[in-house]
Every structure is written in structure tokens, then in C-alpha cells.
Design a protein around this nucleic acid. Sequence first.
DNA 1: CTACTTAACTCACGCCTTGAATTTAGCCGT
DNA 2: ACGGCTAAATTCAAGGCGTGAGTTAAGTAG
Lengths: 405, 405
Amino acid sequence: MAEPHRRTVRDLRRSNRSTVLTKLYFEGPLSRQELGPLTGLSSGSISNVAGELIADGLVEDAGSVDSDGGRPRTLLRVAPGSGQLVGVDVGETRVRVELFDLTLTELARADLPLPPDGHDVERVVRLIGEGLQQVMRQVPSATGLLGIGVGVPGIVDSGSVVHGQTIGWDAVPLGSLLRASGQLPLDIPLFIDNGAKTLGRAEMWFGAGRGARNAVVTLIGSGVGACVIADGVPYQGASSSAGEWGHTVLQVVGGRPCRCGSRGCLEAYVGAEALLERWRERGGTWAAPDEEGALAELLAAADAGPLLDETAEYLGAGLADLVNLFNPERIVVGGWAGLLLGPRLLPAVREAAASYALRHPFAGTSLVLGQLGPDAVTVGAATLPLARFLEAGGAVRGRVATASG
Amino acid sequence: MAEPHRRTVRDLRRSNRSTVLTKLYFEGPLSRQELGPLTGLSSGSISNVAGELIADGLVEDAGSVDSDGGRPRTLLRVAPGSGQLVGVDVGETRVRVELFDLTLTELARADLPLPPDGHDVERVVRLIGEGLQQVMRQVPSATGLLGIGVGVPGIVDSGSVVHGQTIGWDAVPLGSLLRASGQLPLDIPLFIDNGAKTLGRAEMWFGAGRGARNAVVTLIGSGVGACVIADGVPYQGASSSAGEWGHTVLQVVGGRPCRCGSRGCLEAYVGAEALLERWRERGGTWAAPDEEGALAELLAAADAGPLLDETAEYLGAGLADLVNLFNPERIVVGGWAGLLLGPRLLPAVREAAASYALRHPFAGTSLVLGQLGPDAVTVGAATLPLARFLEAGGAVRGRVATASG
DNA sequence: CTACTTAACTCACGCCTTGAATTTAGCCGT
DNA sequence: ACGGCTAAATTCAAGGCGTGAGTTAAGTAG
């Protein structure tokens, strides 16, 4: 419990390996010389640690910069091919399995359709296993699988048990089931987290959240969610269900009923499903069979102005709550509906948020659109074992892990 | 930036000193034998570290438990007198300075009244200095001052700069001013934080929040605030203003105007000031000149039922937001008004919160009343240097620190 | 008084970081 | 081509730390 491993002198080395590896991962090729000040380690230790990492194949030479006179600095970088990661997205209509190298460049992908009624647990487990075998077959050189991350729709408790109302899962021990299925290599670290949260992680690592230590990634799709990053790490709460922004109360008296059973939730105004319903109530119609098409038609409609303005007002109020409660330096608006609505709504949303939020924290917050599409769930999922890998200084291979991070 | 001090082998010792000291502080007298498993250290290291701490006077013998046969275990505890702490509460009407021993038992106190118009910065600085000298004079044996914590009304940025709307402070560099005043010993760690947050810390360390890692301490007084504890540490946000729960939006359409300039804030319904105003609008009257007396009269009035029920509804919705967003294991309702209203309102509030919050996170949250009165601000303030002291394994004396934690 | 039991201490061993001294690697002027 | 120069990278002695087995200390039971 109390701070994991840092008692012995060997943990020190592990920790130093980790900082060096992490710095190299995020701040590109660096010379040993730069690494010193950046990590706070002495030149001697940098040499030692770097030498070890190179010997382990995790770090490689990346050319050198020649200075006028004097030995040129050798640049070091994380070797992309020294390990692979798998990200899985259990979506509404399909299971997607993607294989990445260490820099999260895609190596292979497999999409396995799911029937409409289809979130039968056993089937999902089987599809994940199949997808995994497919991508591994496509890339025979992938011999150093470092871990698997799975994004699922629902609340993930204890890093393994899934409660998914929308797909009819109640306390499904997905982690154990996957392990027991025999479909995935034993001894490979397995991580499970909510899909929205993995998407948030992806935005933080590679998208609009990059560099921020305190941020909120909002995800507006059919419903509404959020991923809160506190001091650089996703905040989970007591039972990993923190960030349920969609059911923030915005209207105690006279609130619209929400599908969660309550009234006046943000999601009852701003989610795509609710937005379309509100348009229908006002006489709006659309031709597209799917929500995305319908929402696009709504946006294009001449008479949707008042509805959109009202939506911006509610969204602004919801964002103001985030500003007041979390005081983030950045709020990223993501999710397919958020990205669709964003360009049209953002100015009005900003104005509304400014009026509802406190001046001081609002002034320190920037409100931006997400840079990654909804497909980044797999990237974010792969980020889970990657984070563990970096934290452990690259010493994970073959070790079992279950906790989510 | 990246994880403060843990590179060298001496930092390891510091860290282990810290865990031993912290365990002893919170889990009472312990034998070396128990300390081993609890800290993950070997018997040899426990002996070493304990010996060092005893030699430094920070830890002392606390008797022994005799077992049948075999050498009895010696119990160890933190020596209460090995250091003192000062907590300061800059309140509405007075500055209070309190001197504590290491277990936060009060040794002396000084109350210095502040005139009604009186939050002139220089005067406050002078009063703090005077109070400090008074308490130090009262306890001549207090020769090991470990640090000073100050709780102020307002947002504290960078651990030193205060923005206090209510007292007319705009970016006041209180930390520098105090140091420059010459009124307090140099080289003594000084910490400044929002008074509500220090109260929250006090509840977490010694009150209703004890033992929880994820909790929210709400503070309902004239206004409404909250202190969020994420993974055991108070969450600050990007500019230390996280937890501004009072201005959560509960009524977008038709919301009551709030003193913050917005509309529909929680504080516009639930704060004592707003509650009394709402009572007045409904024809309520009271005799007491102060808010506390007035609120007591309101509670006793026969016809305040509907108003209180409505208040419970709003408060419940506000708490539900906290449950959904933070997923705490515990919510503590504190602040003078909260403690006054609590016994009457809590059942209805709980019911309302249950209806607005999501089932899963709500089921994991307990809603309890605070155990400490509003006077605990000084205790919470003293907790700031104490936390630093424990983190540093007792090696702080004489070192300067400014960051808040 | 002896045998037994358990707590606490000691110390050889292996590992770590530091920082100065040393080696390595490329550039420049002659 | 060659030595001189500069700066990067490595090496290594010194100082520390935690571990865990062995040793000493401090009681009880008979």
C-alpha cells in the first residue's frame, strides 16, 4: 500500500532507470550530457544506467551531434522495436485489437464485428483472443509483447471487474476470464480500464492534453463523460468511477429526465442522444439512420440555432463546474459529438463557461478541442501497459500485473 | 520537477526514516517488531532507523509489552515534546495564533482582534508576528519550532500569494511579507493555505475523515466550500483553487443570483447567508444579530419545514455532483452552518443525493458530519509544517520551505 | 539456576551514487 | 600526417544503505 517499491538500494536503480527511460521516451533523442541535469543524476550514473538500458536493448544510438571541437555527443533514444504493446477497444459494434511498437506506431490491426445484441461475455473474451492471435500472426517479428490494455464501456473496479450498464455486464471479472481463457500469453501484464478514460489518456499523451499536469478530457458522444488528470495521473477515485461528469446536476427544478433515472443531468441536454431528442421535440427531422449523420444534419439545419445556443449554455455551465472543482490548466473537448459540435459551439460555450465559473480559476484554464478521433481508444489502452513499462524502468517483461494505473 | 529527492542512497534513508516516523505518528506506539512488516523494512534496518530517530530525540521509549516467555517488546512512539508547531487562523474578526506540540496538543494560544474594516495587510502581518511572540513567551520550553502554518480566507497561489476577494486582498505576497517583517524566526518553514482547506486537513487527520484516502470535506458556513482529498493528499489543481464547490451550477434556467455574480450556484441556496435571505423572502424573521443565532432560530421555527426540505434537495444534488465527479469513499459535512443544519437535514439530504447520484459510486460513499468545530483551522494549519516534517523523516529543522502541500 | 523463548543488535556482503581522474573521439592548425 | 585541443563518456575509489543470518539481551518456566 504505502508507496510500492523503494526501500532497498536496488529499487533506487530501478527508479533511476525509470526516470532515464521516461525522459528519453517523451523528450526524444537526448545525449547523456543532457540527461544528467534533466534527471538529476551524475554523469557516472547516467553512463551506468544508459549502458544497462542499451545492453538490455531498450535504448539505442540515434546518431550524434558534432560540436566544434571536442568529442561529439551521442544521442540516445528508446528503441521502438524493443517491445510491442496491444490495445483493445471493446466498442458498441465491434472489438478492435491493435498491435503497436513501443512508440505506439501501429503495426497491425484486427476488427471483429459484434452482433447487435452481442455483448455476451464469453463471446467478447473469445473475440479478444482471436484478434490478438490475428495481429500477432500479421507481425511475426513481434516477439517482445510487453502488455495488453483493454478499454471497455463501463466502470472498471479493482482494475479487472467491469460494471457495464449499457452492455448488460454486472460485476464481470473480465481480467480473470481473459486469463482463464488461455487465449492470451500467460505472464503478460493485462490492464483493463474504461474506454473513455483510455481515450482521455491518449489525448494526454499524444493529443491536445500533452504537457498539462492538471487537465480534464471531456468526452461527448451519445452520452457524456470525462477523464480527470490530477498531477499527471488519471484520477480514479475510491472505486474507479470518478469523472462521471455526464450526470452532474444542472437543473434541480424542472430538469429533463435523464436515462440514468435522475433529472437535470448534463447528459440530458448535451449528449448526442439527448440533443437529437430535444430537436425532435421542437419539430426537427433528419434522414440519416445513425446518430452521427443525424447530428451533422442538425448542425446544418437553419432553424437549429436556438437549440444549439441553449446547448452551449448548458455545456458551458457543465464546464464551469469542472473549472471550479478541478481547477485544471486545460480542458479538452473530445468525443465524436464533441468534435462535431465543437467548431460551431465553442465560442458560445466559452462565454457561458466564463459567466458561470469563478474568474481566477477560469482565467488559468484553456478550452481546446481534442486532436484524436474516437479511434484512439486502442492507443490509450496500450498506454496502460506502456506506463507500467516506463515506471518499472523496462523491467516488466514476463511479469504479471493487474492493477490499473 | 520529476519526483523530488530520491536519487542517491541517502535519500533512501531519508525516505525510510519518513515511513517509520509516519507510521509511529499515526499508528500510535509500536514495537520494532511490528514496524518491520508495516514498513516493509528488515529487522536490521528498523533497528538502525529507530536508533537514529531515538538519538535525534524524535522518538522515545513508550513502555513495553511482556509476552509469556521471551524478551518483551519495547514500544516506540514519537516524542511529543521534540518539536513544536504554530498554526495561525486569519479569520473575519481576529487573528488567532496557536502553539502545539508534535501531537498537536495545544500549548498556548493568542487571539488578536481585528477591526471590522480591518484586513489591512500590514496590520495582519504585524498581528501574526505579535501573536507568535506571545505564544512563544508563554511556553519558554518551546525551543524546537518546526514550522508555521497560516490559514487565510482566499485563494492561495504558489503557496504564498493570496487572492482574497472578501477581505480585499489582491495578489498579496503574504509569505514574503511575513518573512520580510522580521517578526518570525528566519529559517523556519512557513506554509500558507486557504483556511477552509486547512480545516479540511484537520478533519482528515483528526476528525471524521480519518483513515479515508479519497474524501471530500465540505464546509458550509456563510458561504460554501470544499476540500478534496485525492489519494491521501489535498488536491490543489493548477492554481490551488480546486474544490470551489459552492459555485457549482445547480440551476441554469431560473437560478438565484449568487454573490459571485453568477446564477444558480449551490451557495445561492445552501450557504447560511443565502438561506437566511430565502427565509426572509418567505416572511421569516429573527432576533439574533449574528448569522449563527439567526440560523438557529430558523431551525427552531415551525414554518421553516418547506424551506429546509428544499435546501436539502439542493444540498443533496450538490453532494451528488461530488460523488459522481470525485467518487470519494467518504463525504464529511462540516463548517458551522453544516454542523448546525446537519442533524436536521442529513436524512433528507442523503435521500436527495441518492436520487441524483449514480448508484455505484453512491453506494461506496458514506456521508457523515464533521467532528471538529470551526476552531480547528489552526490545527489544520499546523498540519502543513507537520506533514513536511514527517515527509522529511524529521530532518527539517532549520530548513526553509515555501511550497504548500 | 538452567533451559527456553523471543526481541533487538551487529556485521559481512552486495549494490548503489558520486565525483574526480582517465580515456575516448573528433576537430583544427601546421 | 601529426600533435594539440576540447568536450563526451567511462572508470573507479570512497562513502552509504538494506538485507539477513548470526549473536547478544532480556525476560519466563520449571
